[in-house]
Structures are given as C-alpha cells and as structure tokens.
C-alpha cells in the first residue's frame, strides 16, 4: 500500500468548503510521518473537525490533493474507502455510539465489520473495557451511562483494532483531567506501538503536559509548532 517512510497523511494545497459556502480550510500543506503524535489545536470553529473529516475520508477536498496511507483520496473507488478506514480509529466529538447495542457490542463493531468472530473477540473487548474502567458496564446500553463513560466506549471502539492512524476529536472533552490524562497515556502507548495519533483538543492544560508537536489551525490554515 505504501513505503515505510511515506507519510501516513499528506495534504498538498488542500482547500475545503461545504457546498457553496466559504472555504473552511485553505492552502493546507502538511505531512504526518508514520508513528508520529500530534495535537491539533485551534479555537472552536477553526476547522479542526473538518481537517479530521478529510483524514478519515468523510469528505473530499474542494481542491488540492489528500493522500492517506499513500493513496490519493480523489482516485479511491467506493469499495476501497472501507479498506483504508479499517486501518484507522476515529473518536468522534459526539461519540456516535449505537444506542440499541450494549457497550460490548459497540466496542466490538470494528472487529465484526472486519469479519472477526468467536469468543476471543469478546475476551479482547472485555479486556479493553476493563482497561478504560468500564468492566462493570459491559452489558449496559450507552444511554444509561454518563457522558464520560460514553466517551470511553467511543475511545475503546476506536482503538480495539490497533489502528495505524488514530484520529481523536476532543476525546477529553467530557472527562476530568485525571481520566483525560489516562486516556492520553493510552494513546501514547498505542503511539509507541507504531500508531500515528492526531488528537484535536483545546484543553491547553493537558496538551502542555506532553512533549508532542502541534498542528495549529487559524483562519483555515495550519502551522506546525514544536511541542
């Protein structure tokens, strides 16, 4: 799919607009190396979510080129997109959990979608849920849990298949700093195992505790800053 040294994500002169509206992202040039860790910061409405949506292939750029895992997004066929997405983990700002499924089933979804079956799946999922502090809520429906607990389900779902690229949109937004730190340690651990991580956040307190570079979004443009 891609050479070892190729960037996991590369943007060349990328601009993006929704419909006929103004450009929310413009002239973005950047490359995320394999195994890197970035914080994506910027004020509310700066375009953090839009930038992430381009990365997880929910939108296509209005102009410029986006490469993900070495593939030019504009040339991807409909059947190729899910294949790339299976190498990603995405934590959505609004969690996007399936309310009719249990915690266990929500977290197991990426494995099921990829065709995994059997008792090992359950064991693996239960283990991860214990790790994120939801071991007692395996059979609970998301609607019966707090916002923080739902967020941890979303995080567990995103990391269950050990993705090559983890994209997190405000993953610490609904948890206290303690749990926030714990979640970032989890991301760090995944990063150490080779996962490229991008965490969109405006929690300066947490960001300042980690030595990772930042992608700062301002006026629809990105600048890289050292951590």
């Amino acid at each position: 799919m891609m050479d070892e040294d190729d960037p996991i994500v590369r943007f060349d002169n990328v601009g993006m607009r929704y419909g006929t509206g103004p450009e929310v992202l413009r002239d973005i040039n950047m490359a995320l190396e394999p195994g890197s860790f970035y914080f994506l910061t910027g004020e509310s409405g700066a375009g953090k979510t839009s930038l992430l949506r381009l990365m997880y292939l929910a939108n296509r750029p209005s102009r410029g080129l986006v490469h993900v895992f070495g593939r030019d997004v504009s040339t991807l066929g409909r059947d190729e997109v899910p294949v790339l997405r299976r190498h990603m983990g995405v934590i959505f700002q609004d969690f996007r959990l399936l309310d009719h499924l249990s915690t266990l089933d929500n977290v197991a979804l990426p494995l099921r979608v990829a065709g995994a079956k059997g008792p090992k799946v359950r064991q693996h999922v239960a283990e991860l849920l214990r790790w994120v502090g939801l071991g007692d809520h395996i059979n609970a429906k998301p609607t019966t849990l707090s916002g923080g607990e739902q967020q941890r389900i979303a995080i567990a779902r995103a990391v269950i298949n050990q993705p090559n690229l983890l994209l997190a949109d405000e993953p610490t937004g609904n948890v206290d700093d303690n749990i926030g730190m714990r979640l970032l340690f989890l991301f760090e651990e995944l990063n150490r195992m080779g996962t490229t991580v991008v965490v969109a956040t405006h929690n300066e307190r947490l960001v300042s505790r980690f030595p990772y570079p930042r992608l700062v979004l301002e006026d629809g443009q990105v600048t890289k800053q050292k951590g």
């Binding site: 997880y56 929910a58 409909r78 059947d79 997109v81 899910p82 294949v83 997405r85 299976r86 990603m88 995405v90 959505f92 996007r96 399936l98 979804l109 990426p110 979608v113 990829a114 779902r157």
Partner: peptide, 16 residues
C-alpha cells in the same frame, strides 16, 4: 441513516 454512517466510518462495506 446515522447508524449506517457510523458503520461506514468504521470500515463497513456497502455489502455488510
């Protein structure tokens, strides 16, 4: 629609 969108985003093919 929203459930289908989530399934797509976590890698489900249309056939799934």
């Amino acid at each position: 629609y929203r459930v289908i969108e989530v399934l797509h985003l976590i890698g489900a093919h249309d056939r799934y």
